[in-house]
Amino acid sequence: MNSSSLPQRSIVRKKKKPARKRKKRGFFRTVFRVFMFCLILLIVAGGWLYLAPSAQNTRYLIADTLITTQHRYMAKYIIGEDELKNRVSEYTERFQEMGDEVDTHVIEPEPVVPEDKPLVEIEKVNGSGYAGYVMIVNDPKKVRLGVPNKIGSGEKVSSMVARTGAIAGVNGGGFADPNWKGNGFKPIGLVVSQGKLYYNGLGGKKSTQIVGLDKEGKMIAGNYTLDELSKLGVQEAVTFQPRIIVNGKGQIKNAAEGWGIAPRTAMGQRADGALIFVVIDGRQPGYSIGANLYDVQQIMLKQGAVIAANLDGGSSTVLVKDNEILNKPSSQYGERYLPTAFLVFENPEQADIKNIWEGLDPSKIDAGKKRTR
Rank of each mutant, 00 (worst) to 15 (best):
N57I: 05
A52P: 06
Y60A: 02
Y73K: 15
G47P: 01
R59F: 01
Y73L: 07
R59T: 02
Y60P: 01
L49K: 04
I43S: 11
R72I: 10
N57F: 09
T69C: 02
R72P: 02
R59A: 07
H71G: 09
L49V: 06
Y60I: 11
P53K: 03
T69W: 09
G46V: 05
L41N: 00
L39G: 08
L39D: 05
T65W: 01
Q70W: 12
S54R: 13
L51G: 14
R59M: 03
S54K: 14
Y73G: 02
Q56I: 12
A45I: 02
L66D: 00
A52K: 03
G47E: 03
Q56H: 14
I43L: 08
N57P: 08
L39K: 04
W48E: 01
Y60L: 12
T65I: 03
L61G: 05
V44C: 03
I62N: 00
P53H: 04
R59V: 00
L42P: 00
I62F: 08
G46N: 07
W48T: 03
L49W: 07
G46K: 03
L49T: 07
I67G: 07
Y60C: 05
W48K: 02
S54W: 05
G46W: 05
Y73S: 10
D64N: 11
P53M: 00
L42H: 08
A45T: 06
